[in-house]
Amino acid sequence: MHIYTCPFCGPRPETEFHFGGEAGNDRPDGDVPAQAWADYLHYRQNPKGAAREIWIHLTCHEVFVMTRDTVTMAAQPGEPIPSDTTDRGDA
């Protein structure tokens, strides 16, 4: 059993987490060529070794970034996603 660390709940067993994809795969803006859209939807870095990934802690619904080694499985503590600084109009 691997232990991952949710930034909200702390260390928890791997079965409580769901892999959410590679971090930094940003959705392209505007009218983009088909290949750029395919890159975003389907193409991946799929790194061997250190990987920056989005994970979801299913029990608390925290979405966070985790650095993990895809060979040794060693996982760094999860990092909260920096809060959105744009004005949401809820002030």
Partner: peptide
Amino acid sequence: DRVPSYGQRGTLP
């Protein structure tokens, strides 16, 4: 195993 891996081994769950 629902975790991307190059480890050539699995997890117990």
